[in-house]
Amino acid sequence: MALPVTDESLWFRRFHPRPEAEVSLVCLPHAGGAASFYFPISELLPPTVEALAVQYPGRQDRRHDTPIENIHEMAREIFEALTPLTAHRPIALFGHSMGASVGFELARLLEGELGTVPVALFASGRPAPSHHRSLDIHRRDDAGLIAELQLVSGTDSRILGDAELLRLALPAIRSDYKAAETYEYRPGARLRCDIVGLAGDSDIRVRAPEMAGWREHTAGSFRLEVFSGGHFYLGEQKAAVAGVITDTLRAATARLRRTID
């Protein structure tokens, strides 16, 4: 079903518009990340899936907007922007690192306040909400924060090598790390949507038991997909990740069609 023609929200970027898609995949970036992080995966998705990449405030074309330093507030803002779109086609969520926490809280809002069960929640490179821990990286000085970015290779190398770009980017990066590290899981009902966990086999920031903990947060199915690579395995494994997304959503939409029929 085609979405209505409207001005794009500040929150979403459609790099590859697919007006006849069957599912909207809302893509939530990591701490310090931008919507453009998901361009390569958006490009690889089939005509049946349209990616809506979220642009957090404080970066790129939203660099003058005040960053949000709270996961629950971030999820609420995205929920308000997303709500008008939920009546037009099913929604799936993909979040990497901090984005997985945002995606979890967004799924809770969709299910709890709209009765809209996402087709799936893809939780990538992030411990389960109940396994949350903090390294207090957001409290480090600029040099310490940059060292972390270099360690996990999560920021464009052009930015890390350009003092002026880095100066502009650091406030939003620090705010994101604060949001991620001060996140507080609030016990509640398990999600009804299926959860697919994704992780790099050499990720120094997420251990396998922490990823497996996502199983505790859904009454639906859970499976864990492990790829070769570190915390940002998506860069090298984008085709494989797009394949997992495609296969998962194809099966889910087929089930939805059978239910309607």
Rank of each mutant, 00 (worst) to 15 (best):
G200R: 03
R207H: 10
T116L: 08
R108A: 07
F79Q: 02
L145M: 07
E164N: 13
A87C: 05
A51H: 05
E216R: 00
V5R: 11
E236F: 11
D7K: 04
D142N: 10
D261P: 13
Q150V: 05
L82W: 13
E148N: 09
S36I: 07
A252D: 03
H88N: 09
G103N: 00
F79V: 02
A219K: 03
L224I: 05
S24K: 01
Q150F: 05
R18I: 10
R174V: 15
H64S: 13
H64I: 11
E113S: 07
A81F: 02
L85D: 05
P127E: 01
E210W: 03
L166Y: 11
E164I: 15
I78S: 06
E184M: 12
H30R: 03
T259G: 02
D61A: 08
L52E: 03
V23F: 07
G112P: 03
A35P: 13
G243R: 01
Q60E: 10
L28F: 03
K178T: 04
T253Q: 14
R18T: 09
T66H: 08
F37H: 02
I159S: 07
A189C: 03
A172T: 14
L10Y: 15
L224A: 04
R186N: 08
E20V: 10
P46W: 02
V49C: 06
R63F: 13
R62M: 06
A189R: 06
E43A: 09
A163V: 15
P209E: 00
P4M: 08
E111N: 06
L256E: 06
V196S: 05
G188P: 06
Y56I: 15
A199Q: 14
T246R: 09
P40T: 06
V196Q: 08
I146S: 07
L165S: 05
I71W: 04
D156M: 09
S221G: 12
V49E: 02
H132Q: 11
G161I: 15
R76A: 07
L151D: 07
A100M: 06
A163K: 15
E73P: 11
R167P: 10
I195Y: 00
Y183C: 04
E113W: 09
A163F: 12
Y233Q: 12
A92V: 10
V102R: 00
A123K: 00
R89C: 06
I195M: 02
S157L: 14
S221I: 08
T66I: 12
V117K: 02
A81G: 04
I91K: 04
H88I: 11
T155R: 11
E22W: 06
L166A: 09
L135P: 07
T259Y: 02
L160A: 13
P47N: 06
V26L: 05
T259L: 01
Y177W: 14
P129R: 00
S202A: 12
S124I: 14
P17N: 11
P84T: 00
